[in-house]
């Protein structure tokens, strides 16, 4: 299932920020909440977060850039994450990653030209006993093999 995100809207953004702003150490909580709503953390939200938490814009921007999870622009319609950590490497993950790159015509970390699929590396999903592993739009897949991967790619391209 594709995640459905709202288009960026300042009022909505302000609401989300206000909802979490009085927790202690709220920056990550707010960035997560924004990304959950809009699919990314819009540039315009950064100064708003800064103001709500009494931080400098640079501080919030610094937090935003430090963490791999936060996006500065929307992902493709589907996000396919392939685990690239050691247990999945040991189970044949390298070849599967190469296959996905070839089939989609993008390298890990990129989105296809038609904006349909974002292909990303992830470092361990905790499914290392049924490696290799993947995640398609939040759905977990273990014991990945060529056949399963090809099916996932077809699904993601729809």
């Amino acid at each position: 299932m594709t995640a459905v995100f709202e288009p960026w809207n300042e009022t909505r953004g302000a609401e989300i920020i206000a909802e979490h702003a009085n927790q202690e150490g709220a920056t990550l909580v707010i960035l997560h909440a924004l990304q959950e709503a809009f699919g990314y953390v819009p540039e315009a939200a950064i100064p708003m977060v800064a103001q709500a938490l009494n931080l400098s814009r640079a501080e919030v921007h610094g937090v935003f850039t430090f963490y791999h999870d936060f996006r500065h622009k929307p992902a493709g319609r589907h996000v396919l994450k392939l685990c690239r950590a050691e247990a999945c490497q040991a189970a044949g993950g390298d070849a599967l990653a190469a296959r996905a790159e070839a089939k989609l015509g993008v390298s890990l970390g990129n989105t296809t030209a038609d904006d349909r699929v974002t292909l990303e590396p992830i470092y361990c999903l905790g499914l290392c006993a049924t490696a290799p592993s993947a995640m398609l739009d939040g759905r977990l897949i273990g014991r990945l093999d060529q056949k399963r991967l090809d099916a996932l790619i077809v699904e993601a391209q729809r």
Partner: peptide, 25 residues
């Protein structure tokens, strides 16, 4: 519950505390 954001180093205890406080890890 607080949720991390994809930084391995945040498993290191002091980095984790920084992250919990809302900062870079």
């Amino acid at each position: 519950v607080r949720v991390g954001a994809g930084a391995y180093v945040c498993g290191e205890e002091t980095s984790l505390l920084e992250s919990l406080e809302g900062r870079r890890g």
